[in-house]
Design a protein around this nucleic acid. Sequence first.
DNA 1: TAGTATGATGTAAGCGCTTTCATTTGTAAC
DNA 2: GTTACAAATGAAAGCGCTTACATCATACTA
Lengths: 332, 332
Amino acid sequence: MATIYEVSKLAGVSLATVSRVLNKNTPVKEETRLKVLAAMEQLGYQPNSVAQSLASNRSNSIGIVVPELNGPFFGTLLSDIENQFRQAGKHVIIAAGHSDEKLEQESISFLQSRNCDALILHVEAVSDDYLVELMQKKVRFVLINRFVAPLYDRCITLNNQHGGYLATRHILEHGHTHIGYISGPMWKHDADQRYKGHVRALTEFGIEPSEQLVYEGDYHESSGAAGAQVLLQSNPSITALVCANDEMAAGAMTAAREAGRTLPDDLSIMGFDNVNFSHYTFPKLTTIDYPVGGMGEMAAQLILKCVYQQSVDTIQTVFEPRLVERDSIKNV
Amino acid sequence: MATIYEVSKLAGVSLATVSRVLNKNTPVKEETRLKVLAAMEQLGYQPNSVAQSLASNRSNSIGIVVPELNGPFFGTLLSDIENQFRQAGKHVIIAAGHSDEKLEQESISFLQSRNCDALILHVEAVSDDYLVELMQKKVRFVLINRFVAPLYDRCITLNNQHGGYLATRHILEHGHTHIGYISGPMWKHDADQRYKGHVRALTEFGIEPSEQLVYEGDYHESSGAAGAQVLLQSNPSITALVCANDEMAAGAMTAAREAGRTLPDDLSIMGFDNVNFSHYTFPKLTTIDYPVGGMGEMAAQLILKCVYQQSVDTIQTVFEPRLVERDSIKNV
DNA sequence: TAGTATGATGTAAGCGCTTTCATTTGTAAC
DNA sequence: GTTACAAATGAAAGCGCTTACATCATACTA
């Protein structure tokens, strides 16, 4: 592999000049520039990004922590983030946090030791204090799907409560009054907010929220199935089930059918997230769209702006969910 | 951030000694080792991986090119690869090739410029010759889901033909004789092989393969729907549909229902891949399991062995598909 | 006791770049 | 032809580490 030194020799200029045409940060006479470019071409020169990083103290890499790498939700997120950065000549390093405090912290320090210029964090188990400390240590990062007040300007969030509200309101508008709710783990902020939205909608329609009608799941398919089974058995009068995400909704569909219900006629089911498989279910799932893609892009933009000083379009930090009507909801 | 220099000063030893306790590659007296470790602890020392890379000419990073970052298939692949490397203290840099020759090449040289120690490639558009050239340039890489003869020892493949055979044989064993086939893009090696397996099974059962019964899709859901629509309309006697992947099978289900068929009674549907949403469909999809996870792990192992000289369990390069019976196939 | 092998540690030269500061060159004003 | 100033370029010092080689202490052999 040719180095900058060989290029400089061939072009008859100094190292510094080659570096300058590379970085375009200092004017170089057009004539010399062309000589240098020709030399690079001839040698098939490729800058060594590791040496660049060491010398400039910038790695042009962004670390990302997400709970899981697989799963429809994070795939989309990663894909959109990668896209943005790729266009800017940056690259992403990805680590999985598995919703575990220790693993999340490990992932973060792993990425820091990799000299990432910035981090994008979708973390759930780590405390707010830990994140605030991180900021105080001058670590540059953006938070996705989490709001921490002292970090308000680096949080990209979804209005989860409004999403939960929209979901249940839609069901109520179809005349349902006996509505089961399968929540996510309540210690997760988004699960809590979605549930709050659900309660708000019920209240607005004059229905008393009841603990009997709530099952706390873990966002996985199997807990959706378990939840549906439990709720339908103990409350046979239920005509609709609101699930805090699509995976659990899919599980609930299976369990509901096994409990003898015909979908959607005997039971309406609502999802949340609008992940890419949600129209593979039968009946096709009515759900709340979570604009993951947009949020990922926005996180990338925020970093491009704050860390790399690039000018970007307006920054938006709060995103709004949207109802996606398909076939899983029927009038009661 | 503390450097190795400060650690050496505090511990009262030389730079080299600190480096040695860090790398564990040269014996250091236990007593000194402890002194050094204590100094590191006290300073909160974290090695600078960029400097390490530059000095050692190893970046401890592995580049991965996949067609897409989202999608159930690649999510699983990435997840398993990341896991393996993470445990070994390596990290992965991911790029999307989008099944496009130019983009795939760009991704590869992007990762090379990032000084990856090795690459894992799931590429489809780039030519065999290009890959052979890459090998000749001493680029270290492993190929997933692709066989190129001169690179035989670095290809991790699935026996796609056998998978295609298993799929169709299973349908035939259920008494079907009018079987439609929705293939992937025939220029892709796996699509071609799966189809060959299909034909082999038909022949074995004494059925003449007919072009009328084949629709060439693109592996996406929509083409599965289109394929089902076309085939069922032009060949109403079809009682089973074999799809070259699960996405298209999901699309086919929707279209079949729209064409008035009841599933699985009026029409049996077979998938391929066993992606994670395949049991969200209704009826749950019978399919061919593609052991992505295992293959990703194996690719990682191969690199750990050849590039990082770690001893690993046996290396397996050809994987076998396996039938997964669910509910989408009925006797005719 | 001298001689030699062995293990532990130190010295210093890079790895391939960026960047500060100094120098040279070119241009315009006098 | 000088002088003054700006633009272009060069020289060289790092960035934080690894590693070949040199050195030194220690233990063992004869």
